[in-house]
Every structure is written in structure tokens, then in C-alpha cells.
Amino acid sequence: MTIIDESDVILSVKDLTAEVDGIPILKGLNLEIKRGEIHAIMGPNGSGKSTFSKVLAGHPAYGVTGGTITFLGEDLLALEPQERAISGLFLAFQYPLEIPGVSNLDFLRVAYNSRLKAQGKPELDALDFDDLVRGKLDIVKMDPSFLTRSVNEGFSGGEKKRNEILQMALLEPKLAILDETDSGLDIDALKIVANGVNQLTTPDKAVLMITHYQRLLDYIIPDYVHVMESGRILTTGGKELALELESRGYDWIRDNELVGVAE
């Protein structure tokens, strides 16, 4: 066993169990993510992938019943959702929410300034922020007209996903969790978004992607692929595992695991 340098670990999840409305969903989940790494989680519908992402982000509907989560050396479970965000955890939602009456620009500015404020830094005024955000639009090839519209209101499915990545570009998280960011994107948009994510993933950061499809992994190449089933990580492999899943489905892993358990 090698002793890892603690400072390299961004996220460490141990024996995590969680429930919603009294129904256990996560049933003993273990995962470790280090700086510079790209992880992918795959797994059948309903296996608990989105639940895991929401537990990490601190959604109040999900109750943690056991295990620990350490994020950048801190006990993540002790932090409020916005404190988790400010310390560098970002979740691109599978279904981004619409916020009527609040402009995208105001939303982005308050999000950005909340972080500066928490760090004791001076906040950016509207003009400086405008310059900053316009510079980021290019990363996701988004038209400036989206800034003045209400957050996600009336956006197409693909536009919402791009807007999530724009927020990521602005907030520069240490760990970005992308929950099915690829679904609903056309081929060109998929490339744009993937390029954006690659550009933003510097060696001090990490990405955790949740996806059903290999095509995203063609553009954002993972270091690890995990297969989730019934609230656990069933198996972990390299990028080849995803290709194997694409051609053979999930059943062969289940069978292998059963053999493993029987032994």
C-alpha cells in the first residue's frame, strides 16, 4: 500500500450511506479523487448517481445515515450547501432549475461575489463583472443575449447545459461534478462543452462526470471509470471499461461480481 500525500486528495468518501424519505439509496459508497484526475461514474437508471451528487452538494432532502466525506481536508458534511460551493465544489445539474425574474447576469454576479466576500476579498462592481463574464462566454460559445434573460427560463435543454458550464467557468471549482451534462446536447454542442471542461480542468482541479454514454468520454478522457449499482460502486476500471460497458451492457459486471461474492 502506498502512502498518498494528503494534499493531493480532493475528495475522499468512505462507507457513505444516505436516504431520502426514509428509503436507503446509497448503501456503502467509497471513492477517492485526487488533483488533476478525471473520474466517470456510469450505471443503470436509478442506481443512485444523481443522489450521490446531491449528497455531495448538500441537498436538504437527502439524509446521510453513515460514513464520512472529506473535501480538501475538511469534513464536508459539517458545511452548509453554500459553504461547500464556496470552498470549491460545483454541481452541474442533470436538470438545471429555472429562476423567473432573476437575470442570468445578476445570478452570476451574486454567485461570484458571494465567493469573494467569503474569502474577504473586495467584490466586483457591475462593470468589472460584465467584462469578466463576457470573456467567459467564449468558452461555451454562448450569445451575450443569454445574460439578460432570466436564469434558464425558456432556455432549450442544450442551452441550459451550456449555461451550467458557463457558471463553472466563472466559479473555477476545485471539483466539478457534471451530472449528465452531455444528455440533450447536439454533436457540435457536445464538442464545445467538452472543450470547455478540458480547458477548465487544470492540474490542481478534478472532474467527476456522470454519464450513460461513451461519446462524452471520447472528448473528455477519464482516468477512472466507476460502475454504480444499487447505491454502491460495483467496480472500477480505466477508460477501457466504458467501451466494454458500451458493447456488453451492465449484466456481465453483475455476473462477475456475483461470482466474486460466491468465492
Partner: peptide, 30 residues
């Protein structure tokens, strides 16, 4: 009639925005 659910408030929080700021942004917009 519009409804502000927990998920919308959580969306703000996930971006680092406090509940107070979230509510006052939505209310001033409204």
C-alpha cells in the same frame, strides 16, 4: 402563480448564494 420550491433555493445555494440573498433576489424580481 409561481412556486419557489426547495430545489430552486438549493440551486442558488449550490452556486454559493445564501438563502437570504436567494430569496431577496427572487422577491425583488417578482
Amino acid at each position: 402563480t409561481s412556486k419557489i420550491g426547495e430545489d430552486q433555493l438549493f440551486y442558488f445555494q449550490q452556486r454559493g448564494i445564501s438563502l437570504e440573498d436567494a430569496a431577496s433576489m427572487m422577491i425583488s424580481g417578482f
